[in-house]
Design a binder for these strands. Sequence first.
DNA 1: CAGCCTCCATACGGCAGCGTATGGAAGCAC
DNA 2: GTGCTTCCATACGCTGCCGTATGGAGGCTG
Lengths: 181, 181
Amino acid sequence: MSRLSAGDWAQAALEALAEGGPAAVAVEPIAVRLGTTKGSFYWHFRNRRALVEAALALWEQDTEKAIATLNEIGDPVLRMYTLLENTMADSIDAAISFRLISAADDPGIAETARRVSERRLGFMQAALEEMGMPPDVARRRVVGGYGSYLGMAALRRIGANDEPLIDFIDQVMADMTLPPS
Amino acid sequence: MSRLSAGDWAQAALEALAEGGPAAVAVEPIAVRLGTTKGSFYWHFRNRRALVEAALALWEQDTEKAIATLNEIGDPVLRMYTLLENTMADSIDAAISFRLISAADDPGIAETARRVSERRLGFMQAALEEMGMPPDVARRRVVGGYGSYLGMAALRRIGANDEPLIDFIDQVMADMTLPPS
DNA sequence: CAGCCTCCATACGGCAGCGTATGGAAGCAC
DNA sequence: GTGCTTCCATACGCTGCCGTATGGAGGCTG
């Protein structure tokens, strides 16, 4: 850990983003966490804003990787079920999502959040269409299902709902009129 | 506006909370907005934390007032429909909700958010039980409906869904197995 | 109008974080 | 090993915000 790369900084920034929101993506605290100083940061990045953007880009990449893996599953129903299983178990991604939704006044953040959501919705919609659903119907179902997931994660986050998210998979599947597992 | 009360400060703090989250509840900026100085603030409040708590209390009161008004509606179905109509049109409350969900690491904030959510869920559940639904079923439906609303508001906030929330009323009603309007 | 009490303005010290400047250490080239 | 490049540590000034101290303006009471 003696010599750092820009990627190391971006990774640490993403973790800080998940834990404390965009405001927590602060140079000096992250430097402490990495066991280094600002001198390193300002060598790899132009300013703080660039670090936030790098963290968001990393987050966006995670979605791409997840989608690429899921696309190897041929059966669209199983693909959707696996997606939900993975998503429901990932509380970090949910935390980041809420941080960004909350900070959506920042145009850059809102744009990234919108693009990632659109990517996910498109991926899900494609699966439903693959099952023979017309595009507009698939779109509505997917928006409902993804929205329902977000809401459940929100209620769980504030402790208003104790049941683990896993238990809601069948419900979200039903939202999209898919058979339970 | 020459002489301010603690309530004026709390109100301004709530607006700042909706616009910029808990971090935006800062004494000096709000003082500027009120056309006064910190001298006024520290006369009415002990410290910044007290101001945040006052803003949260004000938000909680809004929920109580809304519930009190709705309880004057005898028919539970119409009561629920009116609730959704009011809620869906209120983007400020949604904004505050997301701010608090995002900032739920703060135990005090999480506690308020949980209490308000619990109050709302309880109110909705009571309406469903009034229609003859057993408590556990009503609870599940209500969690699904409220979660669905939160998710829709989230997608709308980041621009991932253009349709106005009003158009989702029937869907949320259906989530709770209630008839459309 | 004298005195008091309520409320606010101003000035101050302190801390955290941003960004810059500059020197130095460690690796690589030859 | 000399010189160059890459990377980092330290020190500095600046801004925004918190909280305190203190004095003063304006209304209320007698």
